[in-house]
Design a protein around this nucleic acid. Sequence first.
DNA 1: CCGCGGAGTGTTTTT
DNA 2: CACTCCGCGG
Length: 682
Amino acid sequence: MIDLQRHLNPSQFAAVTTTEGPLLVLAGAGSGKTRVIEYRVLHLVQSGVKPDSILLLTFTKKAAREMLSRASRHDPRCRNVEGGTFHSFAYRLLKKYARTVGFTESFTVLDEGDAEEAIHRCAAKMGFFDKEKRYPKKDTLRSLISMSVNKMVPLAEVLKKEYPHFMEYAGEIEQLRNDYTAYKIEKNYLDYDDLIVFQKLLLERDEVRERIARKYRYVMVDEYQDTNRLQGDIARLLTGPERNIMVVGDDAQSIYGFRGASHENIMDFPRHFPGCRVVKLEENYRSTQAVLDVANAVLENMKDKYSKCLVSAKGVEGDKPKLLFFRDAYEEAAWVAQTIKEQLDNGVPLHHQCVLFRSLYLSIPLQSELSRRNIPYETYGGLKFYETAHVKDLMSHLKVMANPRDELAWNRVLMLIRKIGPKTAGAITDEIVRCASLGEALTEVLSRYAKGHGYSGGLDRLVQVLSRCQGEGVTVGERFEDSLDYYIPHLKDKFDDWHLRLNDLEALRQISARYDTLEELLEDFAVEPPERGIWRVEPETKDEEKPLVLSTIHSAKGLEWDNVCLMGLVDGVLPVTFALDSEEDIEEEQRLFYVAVTRAKNRLFLTLHHEGTRGGIYQFNKMSRFLDSRNVLSKLDRREADRSGAAGTGAGKEPDEETAEDVTGYSKSTLLRKVLDLYRRS
DNA sequence: CCGCGGAGTGTTTTT
DNA sequence: CACTCCGCGG
């Protein structure tokens, strides 16, 4: 038995050892939340609770894995604790109970792109786009429908708030949502939201709920502030008569409102579970006091919160975080790159440093400065490559092998072939989905089309590959490889930058080889899309050799670094312009700022530049309103127009001397833009 | 019916 | 600046 007292402070100890009854843990940033979950799992297991009767729901699957593997180091039985996201848990549950909710086990999960495609089909069937009027586009329609589900708010209300100019279509969009829902049910498709919705529907059936709640006697939910109302309902439904539910969260770090998360869940927990225990973790083990002073100042400016104040347990005052102003994006980027380099020379490995952005595209100037200095980096968040065209193309081939009824996948596969467009693809697909098996589809339908048409040659090649992959003993790796071989000519045909994309697919090939079944590969791909970090071939690279991290603030949740640079602290970026007309949205941006600040252990740099080029018009960027308050500003070491670092670009020339270097050079992309601008004017 | 080229548009954050 | 949509020619 492990000595918990020795490893935990009193509040952590209370959170770990309060195992019976409802428990709300309010965990400030850096207060050892992960540690609490790790030891709580361990404590339960060591007290004789069966590992598979513990359920740990987290925000990402990576987080669950991390915590469970830590706990397993003390006691290997912890490995059998069940964990994952609400979505992945739903997936497993629904695979088991598919028929109970009216699906079949072989359902396919639609990602956003697929969902848009499906919505588009339904809308087209309704004659949506035939009319004169300008209808919302498919991505707008999807996000509209999704938002109404996630916030459990009527469609018309979402419409009124987000797209008031489309109000007149409220009725039609509602009809569309119904058609789309019917379509998915008929075709055995579930989109991300459905995973949650159907999970709830399933759990609302008493006979099922009782069974599941009996199995999971201890439920823990991490990042509770980022759950939406449906997920809150699910957490409640999962809780059995013993009411052993523990939720952990920090209302000040709620940053997923756009996805329907509501801090109502965490605020209302005591109401939903009367008599619950509340434990606050306020001692911060991560940051210096100087960093926390900034964080606390930001907290002070928030309203509607559980009150808290972060106190450094490290007892280190540390340097005051610096606020730096630059003229333009390139000076800012150069200074940051230079500073990273200096820190590296001072012995802080790249992997212990990080640069954070509101959105990843803002990191482009920095990326070029880093490349120029040969500083390796990797990016977190932003571009979802599993939704990039080439990845989806290839995966569609695997999808039709796994589920020959998947018409969206077939459509994609067929459209790649020259001379096959929407009409032909549609006609062939209609016939295919009526087939009972892939074999039948190949022999009865495809081979018939593979003669006597302009596209027959291409189609024949497809038939060859799919037949080969159909064989019994063919491994997942081999199927992937065959599909890739087949796809490469299409890839080259379709994309100019095909060799970059081929790299992605090669990496994916290695991953695919690790799977035993296609179904497992597709499951992971649907519910736990691979992140960039997983692509590294070497699983155990030494910290010193790992690259610098560039991350969105969202993707940095739960992580920490010695040095953190937060760039682009400008009104319009943080907070983003879209947020500006809603008080609520601005609040969320402020929490985002809070999350960013609290990632830093020792040193924090905040930077911004004044010269903005939004849409070709120059404008003066104002400092972010979150900084522009006395209590925050006083905690910062403010440096006006510090040019010292920008020397990195100009290679340290004397000032005052009239040289070209004195002027910041255009980057290649700027130059290109300027030239194109000029062409356009002539 | 397909494919291409030109015009227009809007640009976050993620399971 | 990349992606989507639209209209035309083959």
